[in-house]
Design a protein around this nucleic acid. Structure first.
Lengths: 204, 204
DNA sequence: GCTGATGTTGCACGGAGTGCAAGTTTGCAC
DNA sequence: GTGCAAACTTGCACTCCGTGCAACATCAGC
C-alpha cells in the first residue's frame, strides 16, 4: 500500500497533520471540547496558528478527521470487491474487515471525545454522508449495464451506512473504548446482525 | 392543533423567528450562501444583530430551520399511529401524509438553497439524525414489553430515515422546486418505492 | 396602574477564519 | 553543489462571529 513512495514533502505534511489531530484530541481529553483555542492547538502541535488553518478550517473538523479517514479506507476496500458479488455481501465483507484494532482506534477515540457535542457531531455525520455518496458512486461503477435506478442505489447506500453506524453506536455505548480482541469480536457480531436485519427487511 | 392558544409573547416570538428565516432564505437566493453577514440578515428581518443570536447561533442554523421543523412534524404524527401497527407501515403512512404542499415547501426551499454547501448541509444532516433519535424513542414507547434490542431499533430508524432522505433527494433532483400536485404524487411514489425496497431487504 | 417576568438592544471583547506578502524548505535539472 | 521554481510555513492585518452583560421595552396577572 504505497509505504515508502512518500516524498519528503508528503511525509512532512502527513506528520504535521497527524501532530495537529493528536494535539486537538489530547486537548479535548484534558480540558474538554470548547476548553481551548486554535492557538492552543497550534502551540501544542508545534506549528503556527496560520498553519493550523492551512490543514483544517475549524477545530471540529480536526477532531472528526479520523472518522473521515476510517470511512475513506472503507471505500477503498469496497472498490476492491469483485463486481459480481451481491451488494450486501460486499458491504458486510468490507465492514467486517474494518473492525480491526489499528483502523478503528482513532475513530473510536474521535467518537468518544465528540459524543454529545453538536458541532463535532455534525462533522461526523458529514463523514458518513460523504461515505454514502461514494458508495453510490462505487455501485454505479459496478453497474455498467445501468440497471439500477437512483432511488434504489441511494436508499441502499444510506441504509447500509445507517446499519454500520447503528452497530458502531451500540458497540461504543457497550464497551466505551475497550479495543480488546473480544470487544472487537462483539463489534463484528453487531455489524453482522445489523446487515442481517437489513437483508430481512427488518421482519421481526 | 392549538391554533389560538398562542399568547401575544408567543406570537411575537414566532413572527420574529419567521422573519429571520425568511430573511436569510431571501438573502441566500439573491446573493448566494456566504454573500451576506449576520448584520445583513438582522437588518433585513428588522431586528438587531444581537436578537438574531438569541434565536440562532449561526446563519447556517437559520437556513436549516425549516428542515428541523418538517421533521419535528413527522415525529408528532408517528406518535399518533396505533401502537399495534407494524413499524414500517406506520413509517410509510406518516411519510406519505407529510408529502403535502404546505409542509414540504419550506423544507424544499431550504434544501435547494443549501445544496452543495457543506456548512448548511451539516445542519440538515443533524436534523435527520435528531429525527432518527426521536424515532428510536418513539419505538421504545410503543415497545412496552421491551422485546426489541437497541441494535434492531437504531438500525431500523436509521434505515427508514435514509430511505426518506433518498426519496427526497431523488425528487428534488428530478423536479427542482416544482410543488405541483403531480410532482407531489411523484414524491409519494418515490417514498413508497424506497420503503418497499427496505421491506424487501433490497433484493433485486 | 403596579410589578415581576420575558424579550430586545447596544456595547464590548475574545476568538475564528482568511487574504496577502514575506521567508523557508524541498524537488529537480544542470 | 549550484541555482531555480514550486510548495509549505509564518506573521500580520482585517472582518466577522458568537456571547456575557446591563439597560431598556413589552407583556401577563393582579
Amino acid at each position: 500500500m504505497t509505504p515508502e513512495t512518500l516524498s519528503r514533502r508528503e511525509q512532512n505534511k502527513a506528520a504535521t497533520r497527524d501532530a495537529i489531530v493528536s494535539a486537538v484530541l489530547s486537548l479535548a481529553r484534558e480540558r474538554g471540547l470548547g476548553g481551548f483555542t486554535v492557538e492552543d492547538i497550534a502551540d501544542s502541535a508545534g506549528v503556527s496558528r496560520r498553519t493550523f488553518f492551512n490543514y483544517f478550517t475549524s477545530p471540529e473538523e480536526a477532531i472528526a478527521a479520523p472518522t473521515f479517514g476510517f470511512l475513506d479506507r472503507a471505500l477503498e476496500q469496497l472498490r476492491d470487491r469483485p463486481p459480481g458479488e451481491p451488494l450486501l455481501e460486499s458491504a458486510l465483507t468490507v465492514i467486517l474487515g474494518l473492525a480491526d484494532n489499528e483502523l478503528i482506534a482513532p475513530m473510536a477515540e474521535s467518537f468518544l471525545v465528540a459524543h454529545g457535542h453538536d458541532p463535532v457531531t455534525r462533522y461526523q455525520l458529514q463523514a458518513f454522508e460523504e461515505c454514502g455518496e461514494k458508495i453510490v458512486a462505487a455501485i454505479r461503477e459496478r453497474d455498467e449495464a445501468g440497471t439500477l435506478d437512483d432511488l434504489y442505489v441511494q436508499a441502499l447506500a444510506g441504509s447500509v451506512i445507517s446499519c454500520g453506524k447503528a452497530a458502531l453506536e451500540v458497540w461504543l455505548a457497550e464497551a466505551r473504548g475497550d479495543l480488546s480482541p473480544s470487544s472487537l469480536t462483539r463489534l463484528r457480531e453487531l455489524l453482522t446482525a445489523a446487515i442481517t436485519h437489513l437483508k430481512a427487511g427488518f421482519a421481526q
